[in-house]
């Protein structure tokens, strides 16, 4: 028995909607006969791709006027929820997704399950699998209460699949007054450019961490990534230290990556990092500390100084081409 309706929070990207959003639409269409998207900052052309992935309608919020997107979407969903009665609502595990789920949850007293990595339908009830302890254990959980459950789902938990459905209809709604939550406003946006393949889509990711010792050493990471046609990444530690922008961060609060090979350089392997990269097909780790947790999941571990290993590796790869 499938569910009748699932709502999905769809986030924009430079190419239309984010890949994670398409993953969630695809997953939702496997569980419910009707899937409706809620989005912002997108044009009506996204109806096409959302329709192909299984959505029949997309509600687009207009007139945010700087209001934070998660807050605005939560307000729009809250106003319609009792009349339209979705069975579940899916959010991506992003800053906006978590903001939206949290606001909606507290507004309507709805429970949230976070870090969802898989879902199944058993006896008409959604059963979620949630990664805990950095993914070392998996908890299966369901809601006891009635009313729609909120699910915050990690990127790359489902494969996006265009099944060729017709375009989703587009309904534009004004955000309107959303009370005190709407007093936080974006006054200016800054884009920190990065080049090369996208971190969460690149077949090769080379990441650096604290073990690099200093910001200048990150150049080795960028060079190796470029030589392998990959993307440079980073641990949270060096993002927080200001060496590279947040867009480079791999891990729980950064990007989830599943490349063909992940090369971790000077990264010890905090659980919050490993949760974002342990799905890589192959893992190579280079670290001075033989006891670093990263070696427990590496296919090839090199106990050594990144400042000695990387220059030689870079030369060796250069000499081949």
């Amino acid at each position: 028995m499938s569910l009748s309706k699932i709502w999905v929070f769809v986030e924009p990207s430079e190419s239309g909607v984010s890949t994670t959003s398409l993953e969630l639409i695809t997953a939702a269409s496997g569980f419910a006969s009707t899937v409706e998207a809620f989005s912002y900052g997108v044009g009506s052309e996204v109806g096409q791709i959302l329709g192909e992935h299984g959505a029949s309608k997309v509600v687009v919020a207009n007139g945010l006027n700087g209001v934070l997107a998660g807050t605005a979407i939560a307000s729009i969903m809250a106003k319609r929820i009792s009349a339209e009665a979705p069975d579940a609502i899916f959010f991506g595990s992003t800053a906006e997704g978590r903001d939206a789920a949290a606001r909606l949850s507290a507004k309507l007293d709805l429970p949230v399950l976070t870090n969802v990595v898989n879902l199944s339908l058993e006896g008409g009830v959604l059963l979620s699998e949630n990664a805990v302890f950095g993914g070392s254990e998996v908890v299966s959980a369901r809601f006891k209460s009635s009313g729609p459950g909120l699910y915050v789902i990690r990127a790359k938990s489902f494969a996006p699949e265009a099944r060729g459905g017709s375009a989703a209809s587009v309904e534009e709604v004004a955000v309107g007054d959303i009370g005190s939550a709407g007093k936080a406003k974006i006054v200016q946006s800054h884009v920190e450019a990065r080049s090369g393949p996208k971190l969460d889509e690149a077949p090769v990711v080379v990441s650096g961490g604290r073990g690099l010792g200093q910001q200048d050493s990150y150049q080795m990471i960028e060079e190796l990534a470029r030589l392998l046609n990959g993307a440079p990444g980073a641990s949270r530690a060096i993002v927080d230290a200001g060496w590279v922008p947040y867009a480079y961060q791999v891990g729980q609060t950064g990007k989830t990556v599943k490349p063909t090979v992940y090369i971790a350089c000077g990264i010890s392997g905090a659980t919050q990092h490993m949760v974002g990269m342990k799905g890589a097909k192959n893992i190579i780790a280079i670290n001075k500390d033989a006891d670093a947790p990263i070696f427990t999941i590496a296919d090839l571990g090199i106990v050594g100084d990144v400042h000695k290993v990387l220059p030689k590796l870079i030369e060796a790869i250069k000499s081949r081409s």
Partner: peptide, 17 residues
């Protein structure tokens, strides 16, 4: 690491976050 508690607190206190 649910990451939802702060914003839930803000909504319950009816303040921006």
């Amino acid at each position: 690491y649910t990451g939802t508690v702060p914003v839930q607190v803000a909504e319950l206190l009816d303040i921006p976050s």
